[in-house]
Design a protein around this nucleic acid. Structure first.
Length: 557
RNA sequence: GCCCCCGUAGCUCAGCGGAUAGAGCAUCUGUCUUCGGAACAGAGGGUCGGCGGUUCGAAUCCGUCCGGGGGUACCA
């Protein structure tokens, strides 16, 4: 409420000749629509009791068009009650265009080709989508990007097992053709190879050596040229394509769409070049490797180029940040990852800060916790004791089907997404697929259903509703007040990078409406016109909010 | 050892400097032949991990201790 803040600032200036930035908060409903603590802040400065200051300010602010009532409460809160007119107008507000003209790059999900998508990928995809959407709501130009390791030791491990499976290490001729793997099994088959390769790498020194050599051979395929190492190249490029197909298919299933994939292979050249150019300035040689000494910055040392001359993840990340900059010239770059790589990223960003300070300064690293699945989802030991992303969705879908004797993937997906999003980003949390689809209480389906109900009422009437009657009764007023908070919540969620605020708000909003709806008629009531308008504003807000979270909004369930 | 994150009701989590600490689930009690009840109303249940400090005011900020998780040179 910019206007109210201005009025307040002016009043403080007039009365006490002090310039302050007054704080306006949303108090509990009983206390009013907005509240300020300026009197407490000024008390020490003025040497007066806060209550006295509050009284003076309140009487000065008594009668304005916006505010119908001002109250002072102990120890010195000033509470403002908005007029019904203003409250009704607030329902029409749009989120502030805080990021107009800005470009925001959001990187998330980041699965590695040749490996399986697990719950963690599902989680960061959901959270990343929501954060990206929030910035779009603030009018930013948003690029959703995805970084993944198509080169590196994990790929070499997979390729070893692939070659082994295709008889490349035996005397048998001819070798098996990669294309003979049935299409619907390809991705699982490939993920199993990774687990196999990783195991062999640990257990068999001979294999370990082969894998290390394969790693070089993979790097040597780049830059891409179909004539390089043709037989091996064919297998690599074919299986790599399988992985990206699988990713795209999965993302489309959950309604995610990336603007750009950054395979690690595309960041190597720039990463290596940048690190090498800065040896002696930022990086130094140590035991044959190129490292960044973090200790002077109260961090730890990390290797950027290993003693075989290959880039580690660190050098690739340097390349990635520079690539992103070249592609987007972003105002803000957000990278969402698990909190296990917090310290790692601190070091990388510190290194980049020495090379391109403005890029480090524009980058925000959001770290999230681990999703611990409570039960009801199978754990795949063949794929390395992980919970696959697709199994989580399947479990939610089954639970929903059982509870409702009917399949509706939108509901299952909404349940999972909401269960993920309602938690504050940061700490580990437990996800219970059965609980999330229960459709009661604070859940995605509750909100979807709330929307469906409201739409159903609206569709029964040809009356579009009107705001003729501006005398709101208590529960009408409460609903209007809540709807009007939406844009503020969106702005806060964006600024704090916390979509969970939207979840909390939407649930409170739906409860508010359900309470109203329980006690009052809409259709056929003498206040039908007003109430239809409220129901319409409510439904639209609910839909906007769910769409911001990228949760499906079905019209019927 | 050093660094980072987490510890709020039986369980899962909100709240992150303000007014009696909130919700969902679970337990118990009501409403109820619905504008779609996947709802609504109510009850019980809390040393906000412990101890200090800062502040008019601390679950929230700082210090310290305890408990859990993660990171700490050629993995990502």
């Amino acid at each position: 409420m910019r206007e109210l803040k201005e009025t307040l600032r002016q009043a403080v200036k007039d009365l006490f000749n002090i310039d302050i930035e007054p704080e306006l908060t949303r108090p509990e409903e009983q206390f009013g629509d907005y509240s300020t603590n300026v009197a407490m802040q000024l008390a020490a400065k003025l040497g007066k009791p806060p209550r006295e200051i509050a009284d003076a300010l309140a009487s000065k602010l008594q009668a304005t068009e916006m505010v119908s009532k001002t109250e002072v409460a102990d120890p010195g809160f000033i509470n403002f009650f908005l007029s019904d007119r203003v409250l009704l107008d607030n329902m029409k507000r749009q989120p502030a265009k805080t990021y107009e003209g800005q470009t925001v790059v959001v990187e998330y999900s980041d699965p590695n080709p040749f490996k399986v998508l697990h719950v963690g990928h599902l989680y960061t995809s959901v959270v990343g989508d929501a954060i990206a959407n929030l910035f779009e709501a603030g009018d930013a130009k948003v690029a959703r990007v995805n970084f993944g390791g198509d080169v590196g030791l994990h790929v070499a491990k997979t390729m070893w097992a692939v070659l082994n499976e295709l008889d490349y290490f035996s005397q048998n001729e001819p070798k098996k053709d990669i294309e003979t793997i049935p299409e619907d099994q390809r991705n699982t088959w490939l993920s199993e190879r990774y687990v196999e390769g990783a195991k062999a790498y640990e257990e068999n020194p001979e294999v370990k050596q082969m894998i290390i050599e394969l790693n070089h051979r993979i790097y040597d395929l780049f830059p891409k040229d179909s004539d390089k190492d043709p037989e091996f190249g064919h297998i690599y490029w074919t299986t790599r394509a399988w992985s990206y197909d699988y990713f795209n298919q999965f993302y489309s299933q959950i309604g995610t769409k990336f603007d750009k994939y950054y395979p690690e292979s595309e960041t190597i050249e720039l990463g290596l070049k940048t690190v090498r150019e800065n040896i002696g300035k930022v990086f130094e040689e140590s035991n044959g490797a190129i490292v960044f000494k973090g200790e002077v910055h109260n961090m730890h040392t990390r290797v950027f180029i290993n003693n075989q001359g290959l880039p580690t993840y660190e050098a690739k990340d340097v390349g990635l940040i520079l690539k992103k900059w070249g592609d987007y010239h972003f105002d803000k770059s957000i990278v969402i990852t698990g909190n296990d790589i917090y310290e790692y990223m601190q070091v990388v960003l510190k290194a980049i800060e020495q090379i391109a300070p403005e890029l480090a300064q524009k980058t925000t690293h959001v770290t999230h916790g681990m999703v611990k699945v409570a039960g009801g989802v199978k754990i795949s030991s063949r794929l390395g004791n992980i919970i696959r992303a697709e199994d989580v969705l399947a479990a939610a879908n089954d639970a929903n089907k059982q509870a409702n004797q009917r399949e509706n993937f939108d509901v299952a997906l909404g349940a999972v997404k909401y269960a993920f999003l309602k938690n504050r980003i940061g700490a580990d949390f437990i996800f219970d697929p059965a609980e999330s689809v229960k459709l009661e209480g604070n859940s995605g389906p509750y909100l979807q259903y709330a929307y469906v109900r409201a739409r159903s009422i609206l569709q029964k009437s040809s009356n579009k509703g009107q705001l003729l009657d501006e005398n709101l009764q208590a529960d009408e007023r409460s609903l209007v007040r809540k709807i009007g908070e939406f844009t503020e919540v969106v702005e806060q969620a964006t600024a704090e990078l916390l979509p969970s605020h939207i979840c909390t708000y939407l649930y409170e909003l739906a409860q508010n409406f359900n309470r109203f709806y329980e006690k009052n008629r809409i259709l056929g009531d003498e206040k039908e016109a007003l109430r239809l308008k409220l129901a319409d504003a409510y439904a639209k807000t609910l839909k906007n909010g769910l769409q911001l979270l990228n949760i499906p909004v079905p019209e019927k369930m």
